[in-house]
Amino acid sequence: GPREVTMKKGDILTLLNSTNKDWWKVEVNDRQGFVPAAYVKKLDSGTGKELVLALYDYQ
């Protein structure tokens, strides 16, 4: 199956793709996968990378 990404509340993840309104593709610890968009919030990183903050645990 697809590689699952797990996250804990407060984690910072790299946002790869947010074109789908329900599932965003993120990368964390060299793993890529989809997380519910409602579970993360975009951060203003000030760099080229888009980052998101995990609002809830997800696994």
Rank of each mutant, 00 (worst) to 15 (best):
G1E: 11
G1L: 12
G1A: 12
G1H: 13
G1R: 13
G1C: 15
P2W: 15
P2N: 14
P2Q: 13
P2A: 13
P2F: 14
P2G: 13
P2D: 11
P2R: 14
R3P: 11
R3T: 13
R3E: 10
R3C: 15
R3W: 15
R3N: 13
R3V: 13
E4S: 15
E4T: 15
E4H: 15
E4V: 15
E4W: 15
V5D: 01
V5M: 15
V5P: 04
V5Y: 09
T6W: 14
T6M: 12
T6K: 10
T6D: 08
T6N: 12
T6I: 14
T6G: 07
M7H: 01
M7V: 06
M7D: 01
M7F: 15
M7G: 01
K8R: 13
K8H: 08
K8T: 07
K8C: 09
K8A: 07
K8S: 07
K8W: 07
K9Q: 07
K9V: 08
K9S: 06
K9P: 05
K9L: 04
K9R: 12
K9N: 03
K9A: 12
K9M: 07
G10Q: 02
G10M: 03
G10E: 02
G10K: 01
G10Y: 04
G10W: 04
G10F: 04
G10P: 01
G10L: 01
D11S: 05
D11E: 08
D11G: 03
D11T: 06
D11Q: 12
D11R: 02
I12F: 05
I12S: 02
L13Q: 00
L13F: 06
L13V: 06
L13M: 10
L13G: 07
L13D: 00
L13T: 01
T14W: 10
T14A: 08
T14M: 08
T14N: 07
T14G: 05
T14P: 08
T14R: 11
L15Q: 00
L15E: 00
L15M: 02
L15C: 04
L15H: 00
L15Y: 02
L15V: 06
L16K: 04
L16Q: 03
L16E: 00
L16T: 04
L16N: 02
L16F: 03
L16A: 02
N17F: 05
N17T: 06
N17K: 06
N17C: 14
N17L: 08
S18P: 04
S18T: 09
S18V: 05
S18A: 12
T19R: 11
T19C: 11
T19V: 09
T19E: 14
N20E: 06
N20T: 05
N20P: 04
N20Q: 07
N20K: 05
N20A: 06
N20Y: 07
N20S: 08
K21E: 08
K21Q: 10
K21T: 09
K21D: 09
K21L: 08
K21C: 07
D22R: 14
D22Y: 15
D22I: 14
D22C: 15
D22G: 08
D22P: 02
W23Y: 06
W23E: 02
W23M: 04
W23C: 09
W23I: 03
W23H: 02
W23K: 02
W24H: 02
W24V: 05
W24F: 05
W24T: 02
W24A: 02
W24Y: 07
K25S: 07
K25W: 15
K25A: 08
K25R: 10
K25V: 14
V26W: 02
V26E: 00
V26Y: 00
V26T: 01
V26P: 00
V26A: 01
V26M: 01
V26N: 00
E27D: 05
E27L: 11
E27S: 09
E27P: 00
V28P: 01
V28T: 10
V28R: 09
V28W: 10
V28E: 05
N29G: 14
N29I: 05
N29W: 06
N29M: 08
N29H: 10
D30E: 11
D30W: 06
D30N: 13
R31G: 10
R31Y: 10
Q32D: 06
Q32N: 07
Q32L: 07
Q32K: 08
Q32A: 11
Q32I: 15
Q32E: 11
Q32F: 09
Q32C: 12
Q32V: 15
G33L: 15
G33P: 02
G33F: 15
G33N: 05
G33R: 05
G33E: 07
F34S: 03
F34D: 03
F34N: 03
F34R: 03
F34Q: 03
F34H: 05
F34A: 02
F34M: 07
V35T: 01
V35R: 01
V35S: 01
V35Q: 01
V35Y: 02
V35G: 01
V35H: 00
P36F: 06
P36V: 05
P36M: 05
P36K: 04
P36W: 06
P36T: 03
P36C: 07
P36S: 03
A37D: 02
A37I: 04
A37G: 03
A37P: 04
A37R: 09
A38P: 06
A38H: 12
A38S: 15
A38D: 08
A38R: 14
A38V: 09
A38K: 14
Y39R: 04
Y39G: 04
Y39N: 04
Y39V: 05
Y39S: 08
Y39T: 05
Y39F: 13
V40S: 01
V40D: 01
V40N: 00
V40I: 06
V40Y: 02
V40R: 01
V40M: 06
V40P: 01
V40A: 02
V40C: 11
K41G: 05
K41A: 10
K41L: 13
K41Q: 13
K41C: 14
K41E: 10
K41M: 15
K41P: 02
K42R: 12
K42L: 12
K42Y: 07
K42G: 04
K42C: 07
K42P: 08
L43W: 06
L43C: 09
L43M: 08
L43T: 04
L43K: 02
L43D: 02
L43P: 00
L43A: 03
L43V: 10
D44Y: 13
D44F: 13
D44S: 11
D44T: 14
D44L: 11
D44Q: 12
S45K: 09
S45W: 11
S45T: 14
S45V: 11
S45N: 12
S45I: 11
S45H: 09
S45G: 12
S45M: 12
G46M: 11
G46K: 10
G46Y: 11
G46E: 12
G46V: 13
G46P: 13
G46I: 13
T47N: 14
T47G: 14
T47R: 09
T47K: 10
T47I: 12
T47C: 13
G48N: 09
G48W: 06
G48K: 08
K49A: 10
K49G: 08
K49M: 10
K49Y: 09
K49V: 13
E50V: 14
E50W: 11
E50C: 13
E50A: 13
E50Q: 15
E50N: 13
E50T: 14
L51D: 03
L51K: 08
L51I: 09
L51T: 08
L51Q: 10
L51V: 08
V52L: 08
V52K: 00
V52W: 05
V52H: 02
V52A: 09
V52Q: 00
V52E: 00
V52N: 00
L53D: 00
L53M: 14
L53C: 07
L53I: 15
L53K: 06
L53V: 14
A54C: 09
A54Q: 01
A54P: 00
A54I: 05
A54Y: 02
A54T: 03
L55R: 04
L55A: 02
L55Y: 03
L55N: 01
L55C: 05
L55W: 02
L55V: 06
L55M: 08
L55Q: 03
L55S: 01
Y56K: 13
Y56W: 08
Y56M: 11
Y56F: 13
Y56L: 09
Y56V: 12
D57W: 04
D57H: 05
D57F: 05
Y58I: 03
Y58K: 01
Y58C: 01
Y58M: 03
Y58Q: 02
Y58D: 00
Q59V: 14
Q59L: 10
Q59W: 11
Q59N: 14
Q59C: 11
Q59R: 11
Q59A: 12
